[in-house]
């Protein structure tokens, strides 16, 4: 135990660097995924935003198709996905972010669609009845009401990504994957077990950091009337 503390203090600057990398890797990926999912869900969900020529059935089926594709992406084994992207995007940060973004789309998209659909139709009709146009209705009524559900999707995505992100080390990606894999590759050697523990605990620390951030964000972005 004493030696682990010593290990931590000796490598503290490096560990902080890993934590920062891991945090940012997840942040970028989840941000891209959220932007993509929100845009997709808004277009697919809002009747008047989607081209009016799209028949209702087409709108529904396109929504289901994108959900299906997103869920398919989530089921690709992470090892395989990083490997598959390598020939196209090479090594390092870019393919790591792309892969993690693909993983994050499903939880965010799923919750965004569900959140938008959960808004009371009577409320939406009242919005129409007072003369709100489709864009105003979406931005002022539907999105704020769906927000708690959407953000819980983003939160799920973050938790998934924090653990998947360690695989990024395979393609020289950033984060706690590096000490973890180094340690696993040399198990038995000096400090190898410390590295494995550090990779694991590091993920937990990053997750804890995100949880705190989410509590704060949720508090400040949920409209008071629907906060419990």
């Amino acid at each position: 135990m004493g030696s682990y503390v010593q290990y931590l203090s000796e490598n503290s600057s490096e560990l902080i660097f890993y934590a920062e990398q891991h945090f940012l890797l997840v942040l970028y990926s989840v941000t891209f995924a959220s932007v993509i999912s929100l845009a997709l869900a808004l277009v697919l969900h809002t009747n008047q935003l989607a081209p009016p020529s799209w028949r209702r059935s087409l709108r529904v089926s396109s929504r289901e198709t994108s959900l299906l594709l997103a869920s398919a992406a989530l089921t690709i084994p992470s090892l395989a996905l990083f490997g598959l992207l390598q020939p196209v995007l090479g090594l390092g940060v870019t393919p790591s972010i792309v892969a993690l973004t693909l993983y994050a789309i499903y939880p965010v998209l799923r919750n965004t669609v569900a959140g938008l659909a959960s808004v009371d139709p009577a409320v939406l009709e009242a919005a129409r009845g007072v003369g709100m146009g489709p864009v105003r209705r979406m931005l002022r009524v539907q999105l704020p009401l769906a927000w708690p559900v959407i953000i819980s999707g983003i939160r799920t995505a973050v938790l998934i990504l924090i653990s998947i992100a360690v695989v990024a080390a395979l393609i020289n990606g950033p984060g706690f994957g590096k000490p973890l894999q180094d340690g696993l590759a040399r198990l038995g050697a000096v400090n190898s077990f410390n590295e494995v523990i550090t990779g694991t605990l590091g993920c937990l620390v990053v997750a804890a950091g995100y949880e705190i951030i989410f509590v704060v964000v949720l508090r400040f972005t949920t409209p008071r009337g629907i906060r419990d």
Partner: peptide, 9 residues
């Protein structure tokens, strides 16, 4: 509107 439909937020 019959169902009232106030904006909850």
């Amino acid at each position: 509107i019959q169902q009232v439909g106030l904006f909850p937020h």
